[in-house]
Design a protein around this nucleic acid. Sequence first.
RNA 1: CGGGGCGUGGCGCAGUCUGGUAGCGCGCAUCGUUCGGGACGAUGAAGUCGCAGGUUCAAAUCCUGUCGCCCCGACCA
Length: 500
Amino acid sequence: MPKPKTAISPTRAENYPEWYQQVVKAADLAENSDVRGCMVIKPWGYAIWENIQRHLDAMFKATGHENAYFPLFIPMSFLEKEAEHVEGFAKECAVVTHHRLEPDGQGGLQPAPSAKLEEPLIVRPTSETIIGATFARWVQSYRDLPILINQWANVVRWELRTRMFLRTAEFLWQEGHTVHASEQEAREETRQMLDVYADFAEGVMAMPVIKGEKTAGERFPGAVATYSIEALMQDRKALQAGTSHFLGQNFAKAQDIKFQNVDGELQFAWTTSWGVSTRLVGGLIMTHSDDDGLVLPPRLAPAQVVILPVYRNEEERNSVMPYCETLKMELTAEQFASEPVRARIDDRDLRGGDKRWQWIKRGVPLVLEIGPRDIAEDKVFLKRRDVDGKGDPVLRKELVSTVANRLAEIQQSLFERAAALRSEASVKIDSLEKFEEFFAESAPGGLAYCHFVDSPAMDAKLKELKCTVRCVPLDAPSESGKCIFTGEASNRRGVFARAY
RNA sequence: CGGGGCGUGGCGCAGUCUGGUAGCGCGCAUCGUUCGGGACGAUGAAGUCGCAGGUUCAAAUCCUGUCGCCCCGACCA
């Protein structure tokens, strides 16, 4: 049987969405569950999420936030308090109506009519309302502010069409919720957390992002302003990777979050909320992976170095294994990005080629093979995941002293590769004609920077082209121009793209 | 909610039109030969054919009902 050229089939070029599914499967990240739209996150995928959590959590704490936990259930009436919020989420809420089951008389179960809840509970799609109601009790004086809270949780949004990690009915995330005495402070918080997300995405995930503000149509329901980080995937579609919302006094008024200021006057507080989810894992996959499977940036890799012992018999094993064990200890004594290098030995009773390909598909940055021949020369055989080729022999001593540098190099090169794709796919467009060409069905697409003014005409055109306005970049220079859709005057460009 | 498709060992499928002993590939287990880029051979374990009725001497196959899943659309802070 001829060896397939690539570990993943189809390739990205052949069928990108199918390639994505196959990578998730081949890398052992997750699988579909018995519940529609919900996935089982497997150990390798969950370990990546844990690394994401660990880094973000440290960044949240470094900016003064504390973790807390609020209920999974929210009384239905809470959702009704903020009109726009209802509009946004009501259509996709799971509702709990009973608290007991009973036999249905046909061998099955049914909700007991006598156990019907007086007021239905919804499973949180996001927690602004319940957290806001709680905050209302916590806040009385300006001395109680600011409140800076984060929670790690699961939420449910009954999406009709789901894709693993990118959009699932239940997903894991963190949601930050803060309360401030002044508008300015709340606005600064919103922007600070957007910066945290961007720093994390670029520094830890090696995923370049654009920081920007959402247009009115794309705003979080109930928010005054929504900011996001937007990343470009390898198929040139954009992915919203994180959002930070300035909620103004909307939720404070809806939920009665009031305090007395220095002058004894009663005022509504200013709130923010911000979140990222397991969708980041989807972004990670689509930013770096190739036709042999997942490619992990070292800072998030559950294992940064995997050692594969090669031996044919017990005698060889007895010399190879201790060599590997010592090497592993030497490697884990090294530091990369202020953490011990994560190395592991794969001594499973599997064929060598099989094992090697498993780790390639799982995206491990460095894979080492060590057999009697290497030991004789005090070498290891090193394969770097992000570059083509079989690998090279390296002196053991040299490997140990350079492992941190090599990981840093991979981290850097992944970022640069992604940034290069993005700049190649980014263009300024100043006419509707060019815009239509750029987003034509047959065109590769990408990021189009255009002058625009929100209008029904624009919405219609975007819908026709299956394209969306992603954001107005915060670092966009002010320049005068004309909206490509209506010709109205505009002083800033927005980013347009097809999106997930 | 509209259109289409599919439910058969762990996974992927054939068999259904034309009713007659449930099959194939992968995976799994054992043994042997192999082994530095995805091995090969032999043997073996594993399925009440989504569920419930009906027709029939006989149903994976035909009929009725029902449940579930997938794809396309609509929807998607």
